[in-house]
Amino acid sequence: MQFKLIINGKTLKGEITLEAVDAAEAEKKFKQYANDNGIDGEWTYDDATKTFTVTE
C-alpha cells in the first residue's frame, strides 16, 4: 500500500510517499525519516487517505 507524509516543519515543508505493508510500518519509516531530518512535532494519521501529517 502507498502512504503519504505531509511535513509542516519550521524549516522543512513538503510531502513524501512510500510503500509499506501497513500503517504501522509506514509510521515507523516516516518517523525515522523525520528523526533523520531533525523534524519533531505533533503527528496525526488519516486512515481514509493513508496520510500522516507532522507539524512542528
Rank of each mutant, 00 (worst) to 15 (best):
N8L: 14
T17K: 07
T17P: 04
K50G: 10
N35L: 14
G41F: 03
K50Y: 11
E27I: 10
A26W: 00
G41C: 02
A23M: 10
V21R: 06
W43Y: 03
A34Q: 02
E19T: 15
A24D: 07
T51F: 05
K4Y: 07
G14T: 07
E19N: 04
I39T: 03
Q32P: 02
A23F: 15
G14I: 10
T53F: 15
T51L: 04
K31C: 03
L5P: 00
K50I: 05
G41N: 01
T49Y: 11
Y33D: 02
A24T: 15
A23L: 06
F52I: 01
A48P: 15
D47W: 07
K13I: 08
Q2L: 06
I39H: 04
K13A: 14
N37S: 09
A48S: 09
W43V: 02
D22T: 14
A34N: 03
M1G: 11
F3P: 00
E15V: 06
I7M: 10
E25Y: 09
A48G: 09
A34V: 11
K28Y: 15
Y45T: 01
G14N: 03
E15I: 06
L5M: 08
A24W: 14
D36I: 13
A26V: 03
E56R: 05
K10Y: 05
G9T: 14
A48Y: 13
F30M: 07
N37W: 12
E56L: 08
D40V: 11
K10W: 06
L5G: 02
A34W: 03
E56K: 08
I6W: 10
V21P: 13
L12W: 15
D22K: 04
G9P: 08
V21K: 12
A20R: 02
E19D: 05
V21Q: 14
A24E: 14
N35P: 01
L5V: 03
K31N: 05
A23E: 10
A23N: 14
K29N: 05
E56G: 04
T51E: 08
F3Y: 04
I39C: 03
N35S: 06
G14K: 09
W43D: 00
Q32V: 12
G9F: 14
G14Q: 07
V21S: 14
T44Q: 12
K50E: 03
D40W: 13
T49E: 06
G41S: 01
G14R: 14
V21W: 07
A34F: 03
W43T: 01
K28W: 13
Q32H: 05
N37L: 07
Y33H: 05
A24V: 06
G14A: 14
M1T: 09
T49K: 09
N35T: 09
T55I: 10
T17G: 07
V21H: 07
K31D: 02
D22N: 12
G41H: 01
D40I: 06
L12P: 06
K31I: 06
D47T: 08
L18G: 05
Y33C: 03
M1A: 06
E15Q: 08
I7V: 07
T17R: 07
A23C: 04
F52Y: 13
N35E: 14
N8F: 13
D47E: 04
T11C: 08
T53P: 00
K29R: 06
G41R: 01
G41D: 01
K29Y: 11
I7K: 01
E56V: 05
E42D: 14
T44A: 13
K4P: 00
V54T: 02
T17E: 09
T53Y: 08
K10A: 12
I16N: 03
A48Q: 08
I7S: 02
I16P: 01
E19L: 08
I39V: 08
E27Q: 15
E25M: 08
D22W: 03
F3T: 01
E25A: 11
A20G: 06
D22I: 04
F3M: 02
K10S: 04
G9E: 03
A23T: 15
E42T: 13
Y45R: 03
T44L: 11
Y33V: 13
I39K: 01
T17H: 14
I39G: 01
T53W: 10
T53G: 05
A24G: 15
D22Y: 14
G14D: 05
T49Q: 06
E25Q: 09
E15P: 06
F3N: 00
K50V: 05
T53N: 04
T55G: 10
E15D: 11
V54R: 01
A48I: 10
E56C: 04
K13W: 12
K13F: 07
E56N: 08
D47P: 15
K28G: 06
M1H: 08
K4C: 03
D36E: 12
K13H: 11
D36F: 12
L12G: 07
I6H: 08
I7T: 04
M1E: 15
G9Y: 10
K10G: 08
E42V: 14
D40H: 13
N8G: 05
E42P: 04
A26C: 03
I7N: 01
A24M: 09
K29W: 09
W43M: 05
D46W: 07
D36Y: 14
L18P: 01
D47N: 15
T49L: 12
K31F: 05
E19A: 08
M1K: 15
Q2V: 15
I7Q: 02
N35V: 15
D36C: 08
N35M: 11
A24L: 11
K29E: 04
G38L: 13
W43E: 00
Q2K: 12
A26Y: 00
M1F: 11
V54G: 00
I39P: 02
K10M: 06
I6N: 06
I7C: 03
L18C: 04
A34T: 08
K4R: 06
A20S: 07
L12K: 10
K31V: 15
A34R: 02
Q32I: 15
N37V: 07
G9K: 05
T55H: 07
G41Y: 02
Q2Y: 14
A48K: 12
N8C: 06
Q2F: 13
N37D: 03
T55Y: 05
E15W: 12
D46M: 08
G41V: 02
